[in-house]
Amino acid sequence: MKAPVSEQRTLLDLQAADTRIAQLAHRAKTLPQQKRLDELAAQIGAVSHRLAGTNGELEDAQLEISRVESDVEVVAARLARDRSRLETSSSTKDIQGLEHEIASLVKRQSDLEDIELAVMERMDEINSRLAVIIEEMAVLVAERDELTVSRDADLAAITSELAGVQLNRDLIAGGVGDELLALYNRQRERYGIGAALLTRGISMGSNVKLHESDLAKIRAAAPDDVVIDPDSSCILVRTEESGL
């Protein structure tokens, strides 16, 4: 393939733009904040699970104490009724029955109050654990929010620069013929680099000094011949620096 020397040299600017685009894309994917944000997402998920479990414990305890309090009210009402009946009863049999029932209710009331106290103590312990988990969550969320703002700012800067570089790249590509541009794009997609400078016999595409036999072929090529690097397969751009 043949192409004007000026277009071949333009490929160096095009490659520089594509290299910068690749660098920016890599930076966008590997922002240091993102790694920590991924870690925080896992930590927040684990803490959320603990928070849900602890809230469930608290709800269960609240339901239990509600049931106990309801039972205490029922027992207290029966005690009040039996004591009232005891005061007005004249039957020995009824009195004995009431006294026995009152004793049983007093025991039941005491047991229920013990249960109520135990549940309240458990609720205090659950609330203490809940407060620690909530504080832990607040710290993680604050760090996540701060890092998200920082990451988004960096991404915005990268996106802005990327847009400018892409626009410049398109302008540069407009100065290259279709056939040469197609070859450049094909080589870049296949091998990672589309064009490189040959300087003092060294290909900047592979950073390797070419063999003398390869250099001899390049010296024999016409200035408008498109030369391919035998090592990196990119287009070799020849200038006064090439040492030919």
Results as ranks from 00 to 15, higher is better:
M1N: 10
Q8M: 05
Q8C: 05
R9L: 13
R9A: 12
L11Y: 01
D18N: 15
T19V: 10
Q23W: 01
L24Y: 00
R27N: 12
K29M: 12
T30A: 13
Q33C: 02
E39W: 07
A42F: 09
A46E: 15
S48H: 11
G53N: 13
T54L: 06
N55F: 08
G56F: 06
E57I: 07
Q62C: 00
L63R: 15
I65R: 10
R67K: 14
V68D: 07
S70A: 15
D71S: 04
V72Y: 04
E87D: 10
T92A: 15
Q96D: 12
E99A: 09
E101N: 14
K107C: 00
R108F: 00
S110L: 10
D111G: 14
D114C: 05
D114H: 13
I115P: 00
I115F: 12
E116N: 14
A118L: 01
A118F: 01
V119H: 02
M120H: 13
M120T: 13
M120S: 14
M123K: 15
D124H: 06
D124T: 11
I126C: 06
R129P: 00
L130W: 08
E136T: 11
A138C: 00
V139P: 00
E143I: 00
E146D: 14
L147T: 04
S150T: 13
R151F: 05
T159E: 14
S160L: 09
I172A: 03
E179Q: 14
A182C: 08
L183K: 02
Y184T: 00
G192L: 02
G192R: 01
G194Y: 04
R200N: 15
G205K: 02
S213Q: 13
S213I: 11
R219L: 00
P223G: 04
D225S: 07
D225I: 01
D229V: 03
P230Y: 08
S232G: 07
S233A: 13
S233T: 12
C234H: 05
R238A: 03
E240F: 12
S242Y: 01
G243K: 01
